[in-house]
């Protein structure tokens, strides 16, 4: 291949990468062409050619800059927001599905809509602590920790939550801010004596766990570490499914079994926890028929 043909071939390649949106590859190819030209006396004085190639490199760089600058949280239409909310909420429980939908909106950067949804859930008393926790996370993501603190102060002054709940939310916010290196002066909360019925709700506010790792304490695979996906979580109670074909795993658990070295994986952190097997039963209907539903109550981290 002659030098001229070589340059032509490289230009064709670089142009195609540009057309395909592979701007990094296009830029590299044009740089290769530039080096080739500058290394060959016959072309190294061809200012027009050199300028043209440099121009192409600039175009590729501009495209890359534009991609970098593109906002990652575009404003989406109400229709798309509703679609996201619907597609990414799979729980059969209506309130849990509403939370999942709002969390999905937040994960896709639709914070304002997510906040409105969390606010609605708080007002309607549907999983208010989970909604409050996510609401604070949204405030931090949208603007600043100050917005989250202001929201908390408003809840305190408006008596939106009971004393114990506010105290719990305060601890959550304090810990979240601390992780970001922020020492906030949050208003103190007078914890009124807990009334019956509130304790169950308070349990709800546990970090979202996506999977757990536990060591088998019994059975032929004793000592083996296994990972189980969390299919449902309500506060400190998590549920996992052991497929029917892995019955030996189910046999390694029994109600009341203490799990001391459990590792919990969440989108925010990996942490160690203690728990107890609070339920183990065979699924008798539906798509998971024959599998085992294993419930674990986390009682310490």
């Amino acid at each position: 291949m002659s030098d001229k043909e070589r340059i032509k071939s490289l230009i064709k390649e670089a142009a195609l990468y540009q057309k395909q949106g592979l701007f990094e590859e296009s830029k590299e190819k044009y740089e290769e062409i530039l080096t080739f030209i500058q290394d060959h006396e016959r072309y190294s004085k061809d200012k027009k050619l050199i300028d043209a190639v440099k121009g192409k490199i600039r175009i590729a760089e501009d495209n890359l800059d534009e991609i970098d600058k593109t906002t990652e949280t575009p404003a989406l239409s109400q229709e798309i927001q509703d679609l996201i909310s619907r597609l990414f909420s799979s729980s059969k429980d209506k309130d849990m599905a509403a939370i999942e939908g709002a969390v999905a909106l937040a994960k896709f950067g639709q914070y304002e809509k997510a906040l409105a949804e969390f606010q609605r859930l708080i007002e309607e008393g549907k999983m208010p602590l989970v909604a409050a926790k996510n609401s604070l996370m949204c405030h931090i993501a949208i603007s600043s920790p100050d917005a989250a603190i202001a929201q908390f102060e408003q809840w305190v002054s408006w008596n939106t939550f009971s004393g114990p709940d506010l105290k719990y939310i305060r601890t959550f916010l304090e810990n979240t801010l601390e992780k970001q290196g922020i020492k906030a002066d949050l208003p103190l909360v007078d914890e009124a004596p807990d009334v019956e019925g509130e304790s169950e709700e308070r349990e709800v506010d546990m970090i979202d766990i996506s999977s757990i790792s536990v060591e088998l304490a019994n059975g032929p695979r004793k000592g083996e570490k296994i990972e189980l996906q969390v299919t449902f979580q309500l506060g400190n109670k998590i549920s996992t499914i052991i497929p029917a074909q892995q019955k030996y795993l189910a046999d390694a658990f029994k109600i009341g079994l203490r799990l001391s070295g459990m590792q919990c994986f969440s989108p925010l952190a990996i942490f160690n926890a203690r728990g107890i097997v609070s339920g183990l039963k065979i699924v008798t209907s539906g798509p998971r028929r024959g599998s085992h539903a294993l419930d674990i109550t986390i009682d310490g981290v």
């Binding site: 534009e66 991609i67 593109t70 575009p74 798309i80 679609l83 996201i84």
Partner: peptide, 16 residues
């Protein structure tokens, strides 16, 4: 077909 794209038709979130 729902597409949520960014500059240069790059998929930002997902197509559905």
């Amino acid at each position: 077909l729902v597409s949520i794209n960014t500059k240069g038709d790059r998929t930002l979130f997902f197509d559905f």
